[in-house]
């Protein structure tokens, strides 16, 4: 029993990491209609950027900020110089999926000669253990949970209370109509890539921090868990992605305790298949992505 309580604790950390990543991914899809399959590679690149910052003797927390900045700028440029031109050219959704997969492949292979095949880990003392009953977490893991909670509340506030957030929702619902109403959709989309890119970079660093070591091959595994969470919640729905992250994080950690950690991604995939068969629109499907909560 204690094993499962402990697994629940890891599940809390896991869902935090997945939530940061999946909300960013699903907002890219919901607002800009772009399924960015290079997301996992941007995450792993940011993790490596933070690794080199950390290796230079700088705290990993500053490395996290640098990783998020990298993710933000990189995603923005990726959209500006690759995705947006293809979209303007009228490439169909399916073509865009192929474009982003090609970008993902190129990123992984450009990164490989730079960072090498071997696993690396951050120079960071995970801090003292904190016990809550049978749940034992490190200080770092608690910080990750804290970051995720603050970020989710921030996204909620952004989408609900700010002009930018409302403009994002309008752009998601109907870009043409939003533009006709005087919303500068181009700038809205740019800010979406900047914000979600920062979440992507941050997610990459916290995912790497949470696992003992990471390697270039982790990019694809990240992507699968994120896709599972995003699709489970209903693609394009930030609140859905949060729920999806909670479920995927918990279920994968509990199954790892009960069965084998080798199959975490397989469990995530099984959930994905079940959702696709039973409820392909996801848990929170509504007409128009990013509809208001509730």
């Amino acid at each position: 029993m204690d094993l499962f309580v402990a697994a629940f604790g890891f599940g809390l950390v896991s869902m935090s990491v997945i939530a940061i990543a999946a909300v960013g991914f699903t907002m890219q899809f919901g607002i800009t209609n772009m399924i960015n399959l290079a997301y996992g590679e941007v995450m792993i690149s940011a993790a490596y950027v933070a690794y080199y910052v950390n290796k230079a003797g700088i705290s990993i927390w500053l490395g996290m900020v640098v990783g998020a900045l990298f993710g933000s700028v990189f995603s923005f440029l990726l959209n500006r110089f690759v995705y947006a031109p293809f979209m303007r050219k009228g490439t169909a959704n399916l073509g865009m999926v192929i474009v982003s997969l090609a970008v993902s492949l190129m990123m992984a292979n450009l990164l490989l000669p730079i960072v090498g095949y071997y696993s690396v880990s951050y120079q960071e003392d995970a801090g003292s253990l904190i016990r809550l009953g049978s749940i034992v977490l490190t200080r770092d893991q608690l910080i990750i949970i804290g970051v995720a909670v603050v970020l989710m509340l921030g996204i909620h506030a952004l989408l609900t209370y700010t002009r930018l957030g409302k403009a994002m929702r309008a752009t998601a619902a109907n870009p043409t109509l939003a533009r006709n109403c005087g919303i500068p959709t181009q700038r809205v989309i740019d800010s979406v890539w900047l914000i979600t890119g920062a979440m992507c970079g941050l997610a990459g660093v916290v995912a790497a921090l949470n696992s003992d070591s990471f390697a270039i091959a982790n990019g694809a595994a990240f992507l699968i868990t994120i896709l599972a969470a995003a699709v489970l919640g209903g693609a394009g729905q930030p609140y859905g992605a949060m729920i999806g992250a909670v479920l995927i994080g918990l279920i994968t950690e509990l199954s790892a305790a009960a069965w084998s950690p080798q199959y975490k991604e397989v469990v995530a995939f099984a959930i994905l298949v079940l959702v696709m068969v039973l409820r392909p629109q996801g848990l929170l499907a509504k007409r128009g992505a990013l509809a208001a909560a509730g």
Partner: peptide, 18 residues
């Protein structure tokens, strides 16, 4: 059966990795 074509592509990609 039910999925949109870009979802289909993603599902098949995930299947390949898994």
């Amino acid at each position: 059966r039910k999925l949109r074509s870009d979802y289909q592509a993603i599902a098949l990609l995930v299947l390949s990795v898994i």
